[in-house]
Amino acid sequence: MGRYVVRRLLQAIPVLLGTTFLIFTLVYWLPGDPIQALAGDRAVDPVFRATMREMFHLDEPLVVQYGYYIQGILTGDFGTTFRGLPVSTIFEGKFQITLNLAMTALVIEAIVGIGLGLIAALRRGKAADTAILAFTLLLVSIPTLVSGFVLQLVLGLQLKTSTGIDFFPVAGTSEGWRSYLLPGIVLAGTSIAYLTRLTRTSLMETLRADYVRTAVAKGMPRRRVLGRHALRNSLIPLVTYLGADLGTLMSGAVITETIFNLNGIGRQLVDSVYLSENSVVVGIVTVLVLIFIAANLIVDLLYAVLDPRIRYE
């Protein structure tokens, strides 16, 4: 097990190098001059421009620039923005906000998605099943942009004005974990739909398994047959999906963060692309890749917990 983890972490190194190089190259090719971007519409002093280009190695070939960047990363230095701020200062607090948001969405997704999926599988072909399937179709059809504003309006504002219940803050992070509820629901929306359908299929398949029939033949109560014998076996594909989805949720939070005014990493990423702050863009992507790799490793280790046939040497 320990050796397996070490091997997986070593395998992460080429993945990390590859992805950072790719994103570094893409940012390098972005049109526009980052130094000009600092000055807006006004002309830039040629001396200033020359100094900046020298300082940020902008005249060096791509590979050399990348080399400087990796050298910095290895010493824990994410570099400096063209405006003179250390990139790590810009990260401060923002990853935490996006991580909070993504985790909230993941919890909501897991509870609602698995719950609805279980109901649908157990009521296969009945009204509840059809209703849930129709609901998932609705979920994937509504863009985040729409669901975000509608929920903000209905649950955040109208609920408050009509009943006085002020439970869902509509913007910012001042209300602690409750601040993340509405954006969490919005962000989880599409994933809930997929997870519901995946749960439904997985459980229906498990319910047809021979060992479930054995459990019934042993005279086990229905609750135990479902909750113990079937559920654990059908959880395996769901864990895979949830693990991979954490990365998707973190990188896909841009619109949600904008609507709910959350100062997270998604918004920072978009801003930095506009401002050609290459070091920030590459830094954010690097950390996201790290989170992706960690989530996948945890998923693989969870397999072994759920399914004893899987063992890592």
């Binding site: 398994a209 021979d210 060992y211 054995t214 046939r309």
Partner: peptide, 24 residues
């Protein structure tokens, strides 16, 4: 379900698929 397993029990053809893989 009180009779199943207690008074009338059954053995299946393929024990590998009839036993639950995730429990000892």
């Amino acid at each position: 379900s009180q009779i199943r397993g207690q008074q009338i029990a059954m053995i299946f053809q393929d024990a590998l698929s009839a036993l639950n893989p995730v429990f000892t």
